[in-house]
Measured scan of single mutants.
Amino acid sequence: MTFKAIINGKTLKGETTTEAVDAATAEKVFKQYFNDNGLDGEWTYDDATKTFTVTE
């Protein structure tokens, strides 16, 4: 399945996608990506659209 992340950061904005077997796996991938890029913020997840949003 394809999962999307919308990034609303102070220094980084945009979208990225990942292929994962479930939402928990996708969340781990996205959180690692955000940690690697120095992002920290509020997380939400919309199961209907398979979209994570992080707002810094």
Rank of each mutant, 00 (worst) to 15 (best):
F3T: 01
T44K: 08
V54D: 00
I7F: 15
G14R: 12
K50P: 00
D40P: 05
F52P: 01
V21I: 12
F30Q: 00
M1Y: 14
F52T: 01
T16L: 15
T25P: 00
Y33I: 06
D47Q: 06
N35R: 15
L12C: 15
F30D: 01
G38S: 06
E27M: 14
W43G: 00
T17I: 09
D36H: 08
L12W: 15
K13P: 05
K4C: 09
M1R: 08
T18F: 15
V54L: 13
L12R: 05
G41Y: 15
N37W: 15
A48V: 10
F3E: 03
V54A: 03
N35G: 11
W43A: 01
T18E: 02
T2I: 14
T51C: 03
L12V: 12
A5V: 13
V54N: 01
A5Q: 02
F34V: 13
D47P: 13
N35Q: 14
G41D: 02
F34H: 02
K28M: 10
T16K: 12
G9I: 14
E19V: 15
T44E: 10
L12F: 15
V29Q: 13
V21H: 10
A24G: 07
F30W: 02
T18K: 03
T49G: 03
L39W: 15
F30G: 00
G38C: 09
M1P: 06
Y45F: 05
F30N: 01
N8D: 09
E56D: 08
E19I: 15
A48I: 10
A48H: 09
W43I: 07
I6W: 04
K50E: 01
D46S: 04
T17S: 10
G9M: 15
A26G: 00
K31V: 07
E56N: 06
K50Q: 09
E42G: 06
A20F: 02
T16H: 14
G9Y: 13
K13C: 15
N8G: 04
F52N: 00
M1N: 09
E19D: 10
I6V: 12
K4H: 12
F34I: 11
N37P: 03
D46W: 02
T11F: 13
T51S: 04
V21E: 09
Q32V: 08
K28I: 10
A48E: 12
N35F: 14
D36C: 10
T16V: 15
A5I: 14
T25S: 12
T49H: 04
G41F: 15
V29H: 14
N37G: 06
A23L: 05
T11K: 11
I7C: 12
T2R: 05
N8M: 11
V54F: 15
T44H: 13
V21F: 12
K50N: 06
N37V: 14
G14Q: 11
D22R: 01
E27C: 13
K28D: 05
T51A: 02
D47C: 06
K28F: 07
L39A: 05
Q32E: 11
N8C: 13
L12A: 07
I6S: 03
G41L: 14
A24F: 09
E27L: 15
E42Q: 10
W43S: 02
F52L: 00
Y45G: 00
V21P: 14
F3V: 01
T11Y: 14
A23D: 03
T16Q: 11
D47K: 07
D36E: 13
D46L: 03
D40I: 14
D40K: 13
A20L: 03
T55P: 02
F34S: 04
Y33C: 10
A23T: 04
T44V: 09
T49M: 06
F52S: 01
D36P: 03
V21G: 06
M1F: 14
Y33F: 11
L12D: 09
T16F: 15
K50W: 05
T11N: 12
T2C: 14
W43E: 01
A24M: 09
Q32L: 08
K10F: 13
F52Y: 03
D36F: 09
Q32H: 06
T18I: 14
G14F: 15
A48P: 06
T17L: 09
T18R: 04
T18Y: 08
T25N: 06
K13H: 11
A48W: 06
K28V: 07
Q32W: 05
A26M: 02
D22T: 04
E19N: 12
A24D: 07
N35Y: 13
E56Y: 11
T18P: 01
F34W: 07
F52A: 00
A26N: 00
N37C: 15
T49Y: 03
T16Y: 15
K50R: 15
N37K: 15
N8A: 11
E15N: 06
D47L: 05
F34M: 13
F34R: 02
T17M: 07
G14N: 07
K13S: 11
G14L: 15
V29K: 10
W43Y: 06
V21S: 11
V29E: 07
K13Y: 13
A48F: 11
K50D: 01
K31F: 04
Y45C: 00
K13V: 09
E42C: 10
E19C: 15
Q32P: 01
W43P: 00
Y45S: 01
E27S: 05
T44R: 07
E56G: 05
E42D: 12
K28P: 01
G9K: 07
W43D: 00
K28C: 07
F30C: 01
G14K: 11
K10G: 10
T18D: 01
T16C: 15
T44I: 08
Q32S: 08
E56R: 03
Y33M: 10
K31L: 07
E42I: 14
I6G: 01
Q32D: 06
D46V: 03
T18M: 09
I7N: 04
D36I: 08
T49S: 10
T25V: 06
F52E: 00
A5Y: 06
Q32I: 08
Q32T: 09
T53P: 00
V29F: 15
G14V: 15
F3A: 02
T49F: 03
T18L: 13
T17E: 07
E19F: 15
D36G: 07
